[in-house]
């Protein structure tokens, strides 16, 4: 099914003029780049959430009153004691923060990671399809240009 579809797509590409092909290729290339960028963004977001999950796991192992160092800036830390290891404040976006219990916080990270992963998989599929279109257009464009060069 997929192969027949791409074959018919190639057929319509065959019938295009060189200018049209160029336009199609350019468009497809642009979209592929855009999708690649989105993929890297999702990747970084996922790693950040995974980091948050490990931090939460780490935090949940500590008990009330344990000593910690709190970062005030990137290089300045002050000593403190942990008051409440069972509640966390979660940034849910657009300036809103929600107080959650430890398991809820972990659950939040888990859910976000799963959401990102499913988005990632979907995007990978779309990106590979677009890449095929771009490659097809490139191949046919090359062939047409060669034909033109030999015929003139």
């Amino acid at each position: 099914m997929a192969s027949s579809k791409s074959a018919s797509g190639a057929m319509t590409l065959e019938r295009m003029s060189v200018e049209q092909l160029k336009a199609v290729k350019e468009q497809a290339d642009m979209e592929v780049n855009l999708l690649q960028d989105s993929l890297t963004n999702i990747g970084t977001a996922t790693t950040r959430l995974e980091l948050a999950t490990t931090a939460l796991n780490d935090l949940s192992l500590r008990s009330h009153g344990s000593k910690i160092l709190v970062p005030l800036t990137a290089s300045l830390y002050v000593p403190a004691t942990l008051q409440d290891p069972h509640h966390v404040l979660v940034d849910i976006g657009t300036g809103y923060f929600v107080e959650k219990t430890m398991p809820e916080g972990k659950d939040y990270c888990e859910r976000k990671i799963n959401l990102l992963k499913s988005n990632f998989d979907q995007l990978v599929e779309v990106a590979s399809k677009k890449k095929n279109v771009a490659d097809d257009a490139g191949v046919i464009l090359q062939a047409k240009l060669k034909q033109l060069a030999s015929s003139s």
Partner: peptide, 22 residues
């Protein structure tokens, strides 16, 4: 982003503490 936030707010219990960053 706003839709994600709304989804998150809908999941919360009524007595949950919500803060806004101003």
């Amino acid at each position: 982003e706003n839709e994600l936030v709304l989804k998150e707010l809908d999941l919360l219990k009524e007595d949950a503490n919500v803060y806004k960053l101003i």
